[in-house]
């Protein structure tokens, strides 16, 4: 190559990093913002409820983290923590994927349900966890959510579901699809009982979850920038043979098209939920609310 004949003059000595150096940063100490690229200290990120203080990017929360920042401390009572998926289709590799997800998350399935209070307002919650096979919905996710709704109907409590999901879980086939139907019939009963259901859509909420309980709320809230849609961009773009704008299927886009009530920053979500709950008959009295920041 001609280029090799004229070596670039190095103005500085270069030092290659020690091969193991990268691994020496303890996990969670620093994190790079996925949108603006700023390096954030773990502690700083924690203080901002895992949102970027520079650009407002919302990092994904695990179900336990979400419960911790949403419910009053020490009030959460979990339901059905021991339910675990079967393998009804004997689908290739499914049990090992489940085992891996269980090990990585410490959860038995991709949703945590239970009851607690938000600023003193009693509520039944269901929180999905995207680390568990992309937050996909199989029989156990459906069953746990339905049992949570049944508990709410029994106790006359409102329901808040936090969604994050790639959709119905392929490995459980038709059973996953039928969970959409099952949860819908349960939410119809909740509605019939005159109880409030709030869906909080977080990044990403797509496929069968969007086409069922994420869009069946009395009130739909979403976190800023969350991807919300039915069919994914990767399916639509080749079909229409053009690139979709960046804002397509963001929470703000979906709000503009009339499918959401509000897009709410994570730091304001708890207080807003408390206010909305307190405005409904079963919400009880709001007993003061700690602001997140």
């Amino acid at each position: 190559m001609l280029k090799d004949l004229f070596p670039k003059k190095r103005r500085y000595a270069t030092v290659a990093p020690h091969p193991g150096a990268r691994d020496k940063v303890p996990e969670g100490l620093i994190e790079k913002c996925k949108r603006c690229g700023q390096i954030l200290l773990g502690k700083e990120l924690e203080k901002h409820l895992k949102t970027c203080p520079h650009c407002g990017y919302h990092f994904t929360l695990t179900a336990p983290e979400r419960i911790q920042i949403t419910l009053d401390e020490g009030t959460f009572e979990e339901f059905d923590a021991d339910l675990t998926p079967g393998d009804p289709l004997l689908f290739p590799d499914y049990p090992s994927r489940v085992a891996k997800a269980q090990e990585a998350t410490g959860l038995k399935e991709g949703v945590v349900t239970g009851r607690g209070t938000i600023c003193g307002n009693p509520v039944v919650v269901g929180v999905m966890d995207s680390r568990f096979i992309m937050g996909s919905m199989g029989s156990v996710v459906g069953e746990k959510l339905v049992r949570a709704v049944e508990a709410a109907v029994g106790a006359g409590l409102p329901v808040v579901f936090f969604t994050v999901s790639g959709g119905a879980r392929m490995q459980e086939g038709i059973f996953s699809l039928m969970q959409m139907a099952k949860i819908s019939t349960a939410l119809a009963r909740l509605s019939e009982a005159g109880l409030l259901y709030i869906a909080v859509l977080t990044n990403p909420t797509t496929g069968g979850v969007t086409a069922s309980f994420a869009m069946q709320g009395d009130i739909h809230l979403a976190e800023p920038g969350a991807t919300i849609g039915f069919a994914g961009r990767r399916i639509i773009e080749p079909l229409i043979r053009q690139k979709l704008p960046d804002e397509f299927q963001t929470a703000e886009f979906v709000l503009e098209h009339g499918m959401l009530d509000q897009v709410v920053h994570r730091k304001d979500m708890r207080a807003l939920l408390a206010t909305v709950l307190s405005l409904h008959p079963q919400g009880g009295e709001t007993v003061g609310c700690r602001t997140a920041l």
Partner: peptide, 19 residues
């Protein structure tokens, strides 16, 4: 799965029918 379908709430429309 089209852009217009998404804009007009394909997910919401199906979800509404289910419930």
């Amino acid at each position: 799965p089209g852009a217009g379908a998404e804009e007009r709430g394909q997910g919401e429309a199906i979800a509404r029918n289910l419930v």
